[in-house]
Design a protein around this nucleic acid. Structure first.
Length: 317
DNA sequence: CTCCAGGCAATTG
DNA sequence: CAATTGCATGGA
Protein backbone atom coordinates (compact mmCIF):
# COMPACT_ATOMS: atom_id res chain seq x y z
CA UNK A 1 0.00 0.00 0.00
CA UNK A 2 1.34 3.37 -0.87
CA UNK A 3 0.77 6.13 1.61
CA UNK A 4 -1.51 8.72 0.17
CA UNK A 5 -2.05 11.88 2.10
CA UNK A 6 -5.59 13.01 1.73
CA UNK A 7 -6.24 14.20 5.22
CA UNK A 8 -7.30 17.64 4.15
CA UNK A 9 -9.60 16.18 1.57
CA UNK A 10 -11.27 14.64 4.54
CA UNK A 11 -12.16 17.96 6.00
CA UNK A 12 -13.75 19.10 2.78
CA UNK A 13 -15.42 15.95 1.60
CA UNK A 14 -17.71 15.50 4.55
CA UNK A 15 -20.75 14.24 2.72
CA UNK A 16 -19.12 11.32 1.03
CA UNK A 17 -20.71 8.10 2.09
CA UNK A 18 -19.27 4.67 1.63
CA UNK A 19 -20.34 1.40 3.02
CA UNK A 20 -17.74 0.75 5.67
CA UNK A 21 -18.46 -2.92 5.94
CA UNK A 22 -17.86 -3.53 2.24
CA UNK A 23 -14.90 -1.23 1.99
CA UNK A 24 -13.19 -2.31 5.17
CA UNK A 25 -12.59 -5.81 3.95
CA UNK A 26 -11.93 -5.05 0.32
CA UNK A 27 -8.32 -4.22 1.09
CA UNK A 28 -8.35 -0.99 -0.83
CA UNK A 29 -7.16 2.35 0.40
CA UNK A 30 -10.03 4.66 0.97
CA UNK A 31 -11.05 7.90 2.51
CA UNK A 32 -14.26 7.70 4.37
CA UNK A 33 -16.08 10.17 6.49
CA UNK A 34 -19.51 10.62 7.79
CA UNK A 35 -21.00 13.55 9.60
CA UNK A 36 -23.57 11.34 11.25
CA UNK A 37 -21.13 9.90 13.72
CA UNK A 38 -22.38 11.94 16.60
CA UNK A 39 -20.48 11.29 19.79
CA UNK A 40 -18.01 9.30 17.85
CA UNK A 41 -15.39 9.48 15.25
CA UNK A 42 -14.77 10.29 11.71
CA UNK A 43 -12.57 7.67 10.22
CA UNK A 44 -9.91 8.29 7.68
CA UNK A 45 -7.56 5.70 6.33
CA UNK A 46 -4.49 7.01 4.62
CA UNK A 47 -2.42 4.28 3.15
CA UNK A 48 -1.49 2.09 6.08
CA UNK A 49 -2.55 4.63 8.65
CA UNK A 50 -5.89 4.91 10.30
CA UNK A 51 -6.96 8.21 11.74
CA UNK A 52 -9.95 8.68 13.95
CA UNK A 53 -11.24 12.16 14.54
CA UNK A 54 -13.82 12.71 17.20
CA UNK A 55 -16.68 15.15 17.02
CA UNK A 56 -16.04 15.92 20.67
CA UNK A 57 -12.58 17.13 19.89
CA UNK A 58 -10.80 17.54 16.65
CA UNK A 59 -7.31 16.39 17.37
CA UNK A 60 -7.52 12.78 18.38
CA UNK A 61 -5.44 10.40 16.36
CA UNK A 62 -4.41 6.80 16.15
CA UNK A 63 -1.68 6.01 13.73
CA UNK A 64 -1.36 2.36 13.02
CA UNK A 65 0.66 0.22 10.75
CA UNK A 66 -0.66 -2.94 9.18
CA UNK A 67 1.18 -5.28 11.48
CA UNK A 68 0.04 -3.59 14.67
CA UNK A 69 -2.79 -4.79 16.80
CA UNK A 70 -5.28 -2.96 18.95
CA UNK A 71 -6.41 -4.61 22.14
CA UNK A 72 -5.02 -7.84 20.77
CA UNK A 73 -7.22 -7.71 17.69
CA UNK A 74 -6.28 -7.40 14.06
CA UNK A 75 -7.09 -3.92 12.84
CA UNK A 76 -9.94 -5.06 10.64
CA UNK A 77 -11.42 -7.06 13.51
CA UNK A 78 -10.99 -4.13 15.84
CA UNK A 79 -12.75 -1.76 13.47
CA UNK A 80 -15.54 -4.23 12.84
CA UNK A 81 -16.26 -4.25 16.53
CA UNK A 82 -15.41 -0.60 17.08
CA UNK A 83 -17.94 0.56 14.53
CA UNK A 84 -20.44 -2.01 15.78
CA UNK A 85 -20.81 -3.50 12.32
CA UNK A 86 -22.22 -6.60 13.97
CA UNK A 87 -25.39 -4.58 14.58
CA UNK A 88 -27.71 -4.69 11.58
CA UNK A 89 -29.62 -1.52 10.76
CA UNK A 90 -32.89 -3.38 10.38
CA UNK A 91 -32.79 -4.77 13.89
CA UNK A 92 -32.51 -1.43 15.68
CA UNK A 93 -36.16 -0.40 15.44
CA UNK A 94 -39.02 -2.81 15.95
CA UNK A 95 -41.27 -3.59 12.99
CA UNK A 96 -44.08 -1.74 14.74
CA UNK A 97 -42.25 1.57 14.79
CA UNK A 98 -42.79 2.53 11.16
CA UNK A 99 -46.57 1.99 11.10
CA UNK A 100 -46.99 3.51 14.56
CA UNK A 101 -44.97 6.65 13.86
CA UNK A 102 -44.91 7.20 10.09
CA UNK A 103 -43.94 10.89 10.28
CA UNK A 104 -41.03 10.22 12.60
CA UNK A 105 -39.98 7.28 10.47
CA UNK A 106 -39.85 9.47 7.38
CA UNK A 107 -37.49 11.82 9.20
CA UNK A 108 -35.17 9.22 10.68
CA UNK A 109 -34.87 6.96 7.65
CA UNK A 110 -31.79 8.79 6.32
CA UNK A 111 -30.22 8.39 9.76
CA UNK A 112 -30.60 4.66 10.15
CA UNK A 113 -27.01 4.13 9.07
CA UNK A 114 -25.72 6.09 12.03
CA UNK A 115 -23.40 3.89 14.03
CA UNK A 116 -23.11 3.93 17.78
CA UNK A 117 -19.57 2.84 18.43
CA UNK A 118 -17.85 0.93 21.15
CA UNK A 119 -15.43 3.57 22.24
CA UNK A 120 -12.75 3.58 24.87
CA UNK A 121 -14.42 3.60 28.31
CA UNK A 122 -12.04 5.98 30.07
CA UNK A 123 -12.17 8.41 27.21
CA UNK A 124 -15.95 8.37 27.23
CA UNK A 125 -16.02 8.91 30.98
CA UNK A 126 -13.88 12.02 30.76
CA UNK A 127 -15.57 13.51 27.71
CA UNK A 128 -19.06 13.12 29.11
CA UNK A 129 -18.01 14.49 32.47
CA UNK A 130 -17.14 17.60 30.46
CA UNK A 131 -20.59 17.72 28.89
CA UNK A 132 -22.80 19.02 31.64
CA UNK A 133 -25.15 21.88 30.96
CA UNK A 134 -23.07 23.57 28.31
CA UNK A 135 -23.02 23.65 24.52
CA UNK A 136 -21.04 21.47 22.15
CA UNK A 137 -18.71 24.36 21.40
CA UNK A 138 -17.48 24.46 24.99
CA UNK A 139 -17.44 20.69 25.36
CA UNK A 140 -15.18 20.39 22.36
CA UNK A 141 -12.92 23.13 23.64
CA UNK A 142 -12.52 21.43 27.00
CA UNK A 143 -11.70 17.99 25.64
CA UNK A 144 -9.47 19.49 23.00
CA UNK A 145 -7.46 21.34 25.64
CA UNK A 146 -7.24 18.21 27.79
CA UNK A 147 -5.77 16.20 24.93
CA UNK A 148 -3.36 18.99 24.05
CA UNK A 149 -2.07 19.35 27.59
CA UNK A 150 -2.13 15.75 28.79
CA UNK A 151 -2.22 13.57 25.67
CA UNK A 152 0.64 12.17 23.64
CA UNK A 153 1.70 14.40 20.79
CA UNK A 154 1.87 13.22 17.21
CA UNK A 155 3.28 15.11 14.29
CA UNK A 156 1.93 13.91 11.00
CA UNK A 157 3.66 14.75 7.74
CA UNK A 158 1.24 15.79 5.07
CA UNK A 159 1.63 17.31 1.68
CA UNK A 160 0.47 20.56 3.25
CA UNK A 161 3.14 20.43 5.91
CA UNK A 162 3.31 18.97 9.42
CA UNK A 163 0.05 18.42 11.26
CA UNK A 164 0.17 18.30 15.06
CA UNK A 165 -2.35 16.04 16.71
CA UNK A 166 -2.81 14.58 20.18
CA UNK A 167 -3.95 11.27 21.53
CA UNK A 168 -6.29 10.96 24.45
CA UNK A 169 -4.47 11.01 27.81
CA UNK A 170 -4.05 7.80 29.76
CA UNK A 171 -5.82 7.43 33.12
CA UNK A 172 -2.51 7.79 34.97
CA UNK A 173 -1.84 11.10 33.25
CA UNK A 174 -5.08 12.64 34.51
CA UNK A 175 -4.87 10.89 37.86
CA UNK A 176 -1.68 12.75 38.62
CA UNK A 177 -2.82 16.05 37.15
CA UNK A 178 -2.71 19.24 39.15
CA UNK A 179 -6.30 20.34 39.86
CA UNK A 180 -5.69 24.00 39.15
CA UNK A 181 -3.94 23.17 35.92
CA UNK A 182 -6.64 20.80 34.78
CA UNK A 183 -9.27 23.40 35.61
CA UNK A 184 -7.78 25.58 32.89
CA UNK A 185 -8.96 22.86 30.49
CA UNK A 186 -12.40 22.39 32.04
CA UNK A 187 -13.90 25.78 31.46
CA UNK A 188 -12.33 26.98 34.72
CA UNK A 189 -14.65 24.65 36.54
CA UNK A 190 -12.59 23.43 39.50
CA UNK A 191 -15.24 21.05 40.72
CA UNK A 192 -15.26 19.32 37.36
CA UNK A 193 -11.48 19.14 37.30
CA UNK A 194 -11.41 17.59 40.77
CA UNK A 195 -14.11 15.10 39.77
CA UNK A 196 -12.17 14.01 36.70
CA UNK A 197 -9.00 13.51 38.72
CA UNK A 198 -10.84 11.48 41.35
CA UNK A 199 -12.44 9.35 38.64
CA UNK A 200 -9.10 8.80 36.92
CA UNK A 201 -7.61 7.62 40.22
CA UNK A 202 -10.50 5.26 40.74
CA UNK A 203 -10.01 3.97 37.22
CA UNK A 204 -6.30 3.46 37.82
CA UNK A 205 -6.94 1.61 41.06
CA UNK A 206 -8.96 -0.95 39.14
CA UNK A 207 -12.33 -0.23 40.66
CA UNK A 208 -13.75 1.01 37.38
CA UNK A 209 -11.79 -1.46 35.34
CA UNK A 210 -13.81 -4.25 36.81
CA UNK A 211 -17.03 -2.53 35.78
CA UNK A 212 -15.72 -2.26 32.26
CA UNK A 213 -14.68 -5.89 32.13
CA UNK A 214 -17.94 -7.18 33.51
CA UNK A 215 -20.20 -4.66 31.78
CA UNK A 216 -21.40 -7.15 29.21
CA UNK A 217 -22.69 -9.55 31.81
CA UNK A 218 -24.16 -7.47 34.60
CA UNK A 219 -27.29 -5.39 34.84
CA UNK A 220 -27.49 -1.77 33.79
CA UNK A 221 -28.36 -0.91 37.35
CA UNK A 222 -25.12 -2.46 38.59
CA UNK A 223 -23.12 -0.46 36.07
CA UNK A 224 -24.94 2.73 37.04
CA UNK A 225 -24.28 2.22 40.72
CA UNK A 226 -20.56 1.75 40.17
CA UNK A 227 -20.36 4.83 37.96
CA UNK A 228 -22.64 7.07 40.01
CA UNK A 229 -20.53 6.40 43.10
CA UNK A 230 -18.16 8.95 41.58
CA UNK A 231 -18.82 12.61 42.09
CA UNK A 232 -19.65 14.27 38.80
CA UNK A 233 -21.33 11.22 37.32
CA UNK A 234 -25.10 11.12 37.56
CA UNK A 235 -27.67 8.90 35.87
CA UNK A 236 -27.48 10.62 32.50
CA UNK A 237 -23.70 10.52 32.26
CA UNK A 238 -23.63 6.95 33.55
CA UNK A 239 -26.04 5.94 30.81
CA UNK A 240 -23.91 7.72 28.22
CA UNK A 241 -20.82 5.88 29.42
CA UNK A 242 -22.68 2.58 29.26
CA UNK A 243 -23.99 3.30 25.76
CA UNK A 244 -20.90 4.76 24.11
CA UNK A 245 -18.10 3.31 26.19
CA UNK A 246 -19.32 -0.08 27.37
CA UNK A 247 -21.26 -1.22 24.33
CA UNK A 248 -24.50 -1.34 26.28
CA UNK A 249 -26.90 -0.41 23.52
CA UNK A 250 -29.82 -0.88 25.88
CA UNK A 251 -28.75 2.14 27.94
CA UNK A 252 -31.00 5.09 27.15
CA UNK A 253 -29.56 8.43 28.31
CA UNK A 254 -32.04 11.29 28.50
CA UNK A 255 -30.72 14.79 28.02
CA UNK A 256 -32.43 18.02 27.13
CA UNK A 257 -32.81 17.00 23.48
CA UNK A 258 -34.15 13.53 24.16
CA UNK A 259 -36.57 15.07 26.62
CA UNK A 260 -37.77 17.38 23.86
CA UNK A 261 -38.40 14.69 21.25
CA UNK A 262 -40.06 12.38 23.74
CA UNK A 263 -42.73 15.05 24.07
CA UNK A 264 -42.80 16.44 20.53
CA UNK A 265 -42.62 13.14 18.64
CA UNK A 266 -44.19 10.66 21.01
CA UNK A 267 -46.46 12.85 23.12
CA UNK A 268 -45.12 11.61 26.43
CA UNK A 269 -46.58 14.10 28.91
CA UNK A 270 -43.99 13.52 31.63
CA UNK A 271 -41.31 14.76 29.24
CA UNK A 272 -42.52 18.29 29.91
CA UNK A 273 -41.69 18.01 33.58
CA UNK A 274 -38.20 18.43 34.99
CA UNK A 275 -35.74 15.53 34.94
CA UNK A 276 -35.81 14.41 38.53
CA UNK A 277 -34.43 10.93 39.09
CA UNK A 278 -37.92 9.54 39.43
CA UNK A 279 -39.11 11.18 36.23
CA UNK A 280 -35.91 10.22 34.43
CA UNK A 281 -36.51 6.56 35.21
CA UNK A 282 -40.19 6.84 34.31
CA UNK A 283 -39.35 8.36 30.94
CA UNK A 284 -36.90 5.57 30.24
CA UNK A 285 -39.62 3.01 30.88
CA UNK A 286 -41.94 4.88 28.52
CA UNK A 287 -39.24 5.03 25.84
CA UNK A 288 -38.61 1.31 26.12
CA UNK A 289 -42.27 0.66 25.41
CA UNK A 290 -41.76 2.33 22.05
CA UNK A 291 -38.19 1.35 21.24
CA UNK A 292 -37.94 -1.99 22.93
CA UNK A 293 -35.24 -2.84 25.43
CA UNK A 294 -32.29 -4.40 23.64
CA UNK A 295 -31.47 -1.44 21.37
CA UNK A 296 -33.30 1.37 23.14
CA UNK A 297 -30.19 3.50 23.44
CA UNK A 298 -29.02 2.75 19.94
CA UNK A 299 -32.38 3.76 18.51
CA UNK A 300 -32.48 6.73 20.85
CA UNK A 301 -29.22 8.00 19.50
CA UNK A 302 -30.53 7.90 15.96
CA UNK A 303 -33.58 9.84 17.10
CA UNK A 304 -31.38 12.25 19.03
CA UNK A 305 -29.17 12.96 16.08
CA UNK A 306 -32.10 13.38 13.70
CA UNK A 307 -33.86 15.68 16.13
CA UNK A 308 -30.92 18.01 16.42
CA UNK A 309 -30.31 18.23 12.70
CA UNK A 310 -33.77 18.09 11.18
CA UNK A 311 -35.83 19.85 13.83
CA UNK A 312 -33.40 22.03 15.76
CA UNK A 313 -31.46 22.75 12.57
CA UNK A 314 -28.13 22.48 14.29
CA UNK A 315 -25.28 22.76 11.86
CA UNK A 316 -22.52 20.79 13.49
CA UNK A 317 -23.65 17.33 14.48
C1' DC B 1 -30.36 41.74 28.40
C1' DT B 2 -32.17 37.03 28.65
C1' DC B 3 -32.10 32.27 27.58
C1' DC B 4 -30.19 27.99 26.63
C1' DA B 5 -26.46 24.65 25.85
C1' DG B 6 -25.85 16.51 25.19
C1' DG B 7 -26.19 17.89 34.22
C1' DC B 8 -24.79 17.15 38.89
C1' DA B 9 -24.91 17.89 43.81
C1' DA B 10 -26.31 20.38 47.69
C1' DT B 11 -29.89 22.95 49.73
C1' DT B 12 -34.48 24.39 50.71
C1' DG B 13 -39.72 24.14 50.90
C1' DC C 1 -40.99 13.84 47.96
C1' DA C 2 -40.29 18.24 44.42
C1' DA C 3 -38.33 22.57 43.29
C1' DT C 4 -34.42 25.63 43.30
C1' DT C 5 -29.62 27.17 43.02
C1' DG C 6 -24.44 27.29 42.16
C1' DC C 7 -21.17 25.94 38.98
C1' DA C 8 -19.05 28.62 34.18
C1' DT C 9 -18.99 30.30 29.55
C1' DG C 10 -20.38 31.81 24.98
C1' DG C 11 -23.47 32.20 21.29
C1' DA C 12 -28.13 33.28 19.58
Amino acid sequence: MTARNNLFKYFINTDKRLNLKDTLFSGQTFSWTKRDFATGYHLNIIGDRIILLSDFYENYIEILSDNKKINGLRISDFLYRYFSLDIEEKTIFSSRFQPDFPEVWRLIEPYLSVRVMRQDPFEVMVTFMCAQGIGMHLIRRQVSMITERYGEKYVLDTENGPLVLHGFPAPSSLASANPNELALCTNNNRIRAANIIAMARSFESGKLGLVCAESGNCSLETIREALCAHSGIGLKIADCIALFGLGRFDAFPIDTHVKQYLWEWFGIEAARKSLTEKNYRFLQDEARKILGNEFAGYAGHILFHCWRKEVKKMKAF
